[in-house]
Design a protein around this nucleic acid. Sequence first.
DNA 1: CAGCCATAAAAAGTCAGACTTATATGTCAC
DNA 2: GTGACATATAAGTCTGACTTTTTATGGCTG
Lengths: 233, 233
Amino acid sequence: MSTRGRGLHGHVLDTLGPAITSGEYPPGSVLRTDELAQHFEVSRSVMREAVRVLESMHLVESRRRVGVTVRPKAEWNVYDPQVIRWRLAGADRPHQLRSLTVLRSAVEPVAAGLAARHATAEQCAELTECALGMVANSRGHRLQQYLFHDVAFHRVILNASGNEMFARLGDVVAEVLSGRTRHEVMFEDPDPAAVTLHVRLAEAVRARDAVRAEELTREITAGALQELDILAP
Amino acid sequence: MSTRGRGLHGHVLDTLGPAITSGEYPPGSVLRTDELAQHFEVSRSVMREAVRVLESMHLVESRRRVGVTVRPKAEWNVYDPQVIRWRLAGADRPHQLRSLTVLRSAVEPVAAGLAARHATAEQCAELTECALGMVANSRGHRLQQYLFHDVAFHRVILNASGNEMFARLGDVVAEVLSGRTRHEVMFEDPDPAAVTLHVRLAEAVRARDAVRAEELTREITAGALQELDILAP
DNA sequence: CAGCCATAAAAAGTCAGACTTATATGTCAC
DNA sequence: GTGACATATAAGTCTGACTTTTTATGGCTG
């Protein structure tokens, strides 16, 4: 996973990326390409490629005669899936999870409304299938199977919205949902009310009821916010 | 602008990036690093750095013995500011503008609600100042000055939300707003109703009225959708 | 002492060439 | 047809030398 371990520069990124996003190298820190290359025991060419990638993520800035400077957090490309993974794997995972859940609560209801208008028959079928899968695995500590269908469900909604920006948030939602099952809440069976909401949402999309789809999704995301004790979204 | 023309690899990206996002090299196309290096008259090292950046944006995939393959559009990192700029500069600018406006319509109302809760006194003051600037420049074809305050206004809202994911959409909103003034609609003075909505929104945030702030922002973004003839968002 | 300019040093940037490695594809035997 | 094997190809890596830009320094002049 991650950088698919592809190539030496990928390995360097797997170490250096998290080190930066976790604050090990705080903003303003200055790194030297040559030193890094020595430290990671790779050639300067490889190190330079890694730095270029970090630069394209706005994590660092490379300037002549100065070095590679870590940029302030506010400038990072926080929508880069790689950056999101690094941060979710690091210390501010809880904070990141909250930010992303709030984002979900803004995007998903609108996406669901659009999905109700644009979903194909096939997508409606997938949706129903996922919802049934959730129901079937909602009891008896079958959390992994439940998660699988939950993720698939939200992915279909986002894709069916027909908006590419929404569709690309599928991975983010998947991370948030699986993160929830893995480390945070959700040690017990999922809330039956949440399961019901998904079933009704699938029905609403099938019935092309955009308003109802949007409202049901608001209830779903409100639940997600509550789980993280985010009272005032 | 763009890649800040920094270095040869930046120049290569300025040409190759738009070429890919515009579909000049359709998904599935295979490029060879050596050929590209020759074509751009740069060394392979520089070309490789450029390819690495494109790879980190998920625009291409580099595989041994095959070459550099253009990935399907659905896999691109469409939230990367660089990618957004390239696409806004290219042929599917209208399509991109619609996607981003729909995204705005989902995010900004929630952001405004949060801003009403979290905005500092300073941010409230900035907001009022921006709104006044909009009013002052809403007549007499002072479109540039109006745009400046409009962008600043929405930036403050997004920053004041306290959510880093929202805050990072400031640049996107800026692009959408300025794009609107530049190429699309808005040859005449802005709609007075929209101006009024901004003033009332600034008041709502100052008054810590989250519900009203959210609703006013919905009206603002609904207007933006209408301008692009997006009837059913 | 202040201000300015020439100089030097530091680090990134660039290039060229040789070598390594993975892998798609074709070939041959069975 | 299936499998093992050979081969060619393009990316990947390393090294070392050179260039360019930017900053700091230090001495000169007023």
